[in-house]
Design a protein around this nucleic acid. Structure first.
Lengths: 233, 233
DNA sequence: CGGTTGGTTGATGCTGGTCAAGGTTCGTGG
DNA sequence: CCACGAACCTTGACCAGCATCAACCAACCG
């Protein structure tokens, strides 16, 4: 229950390889290289960190997907955010002693784990990196605002439709998007039940709005889906 | 529609008077004083900024309460956050061109408005201030996580109960807490309707869990309310 | 006063949750 | 290679929680 990390290879990882920090420019490359960090791999069953645990690292997702979630006292989970490759997560440690939520990979994840006190190793560059983190944090806040709107002011169809649109938004129409989330994940993300998610999928597949195979999804009728996402019925 | 600000007195306000910045220590006092900013007063009908508008200032709330909210395409509002005196808001401008949500006072508000480019006036102190903002931003994120849990995974009673507990948490039991929110505000905050909020209040007043007068509230049976907040019925 | 705004309460119905039964997929071991 | 079990998904029947609609009330204010 405690040491999921014992068996992992602790290869070092270099921060300057991440696109996140590219905008700082190459002159920070040396400082970034001096940060002690390690690359770790997790499978679906393992937790990266659990809510309430001492928050000593922040993470950058190298590959895979990670879900961040909170659990109510009744044991219901709410997914806060799905982290995608290249994104940063787990910065509670900058402010707080403990993590505020839990982090678990969807299927698998390789992450770069950085001790928060390693920010000191950045020396001159520290301010720049902190500004970067600040900006990403603000973006996260904007994203959270959007999710609050979804959870609080939308009906099931609108929720699922806008989620699918957001999930596939990088993919051109007529192509498959991998859908790594299970029905349960989607339900916990949108504040619904597995059954309603399943029913909506079934309906839209019947109507030819989307098609699904194995773990991939294709939006066929984009217009219809955007209509549903905004139209309250 | 455009210039709610024309008729306001534009008294300067000094950042170093805010408790927010006190933790920086007195040596930053001079730098903070050099920031150009103005004190503005708004009434309930006026908007401080609207979603989509060019984001050129951030704000510190001096007095009153401010609600931040987003509106769906169907015109339903979702309150993101209630800002209390001393807190900072509206930092979209650090990252984005436009505000992501709207800000309106609950009854009235006096705010200190700071142009984002004034961060440059901070000189040496800039990094420290940005770190401070980063930390407050992370706290906001944690707060948003909690709200996501509330909106997505709780039932009406749990929502209202935990909101009331959070709202009154500074007040000792047996004392009145001012409740500046209307039923509509509470409904839009919790993703409910006015009617259900009203009904729950009525029920709890009948049961002697809370008492209410004019614009103030007192939690009588704290234990009962915490039970409701966590117990799923 | 009468109008307006905000709050209460009741009757009714729909959305989505709950419960339950079967189907699919997939991995494991015989 | 097939059989079995576990995890996940689907579908149906039923129900409850909350929204909706509507009428009424209280406070406030010109």
């Amino acid at each position: 229950m405690e040491s999921q990390v014992g068996n992992k290879q602790a290869k070092k990882c270099s921060l300057d390889e991440f696109a996140l920090f590219a905008e700082l420019g190459s002159k920070f490359s040396d400082a970034l290289k001096s940060v002690a960090s390690e690359m770790l791999e997790y499978m679906a069953a393992e937790t990266i960190y659990a809510a309430g645990v001492s928050a000593q690292h922040f993470y950058i997702l190298h590959d895979g997907y990670v879900k961040l979630f909170k659990t109510t006292s009744n044991g219901k989970d709410q997914i806060i955010r799905i982290v995608k490759a290249g994104e940063i997560f787990g910065f509670d440690g900058f402010v707080d002693i403990r993590y505020n939520h839990s982090a678990v990979p969807l299927k698998y994840a390789t992450v770069c784990r950085v001790p928060v006190e390693q920010l000191n190793a950045l020396g001159e560059s520290r301010a720049e990196v902190e500004r970067l983190i600040m900006m990403h944090c603000i973006k996260e806040l904007q994203h959270a605002d959007e999710r609050l709107l979804e959870l609080g002011a939308k009906r099931s169809q609108e929720k699922l439709a806008s989620f699918l649109l957001a999930w596939c938004n990088t993919t051109p129409v007529g192509e498959w998007t991998p859908l790594v989330l299970s029905r349960l994940d989607i339900a916990q993300l949108l504040g619904l039940t597995i059954e309603t998610v399943s029913r909506l999928f079934a309906q839209w597949k019947r109507e030819g709005v989307v098609i699904e195979r194995h773990q991939a999804l294709q939006i066929v009728d984009l217009q219809k889906l955007t209509l549903v996402a905004h139209s309250h019925e």
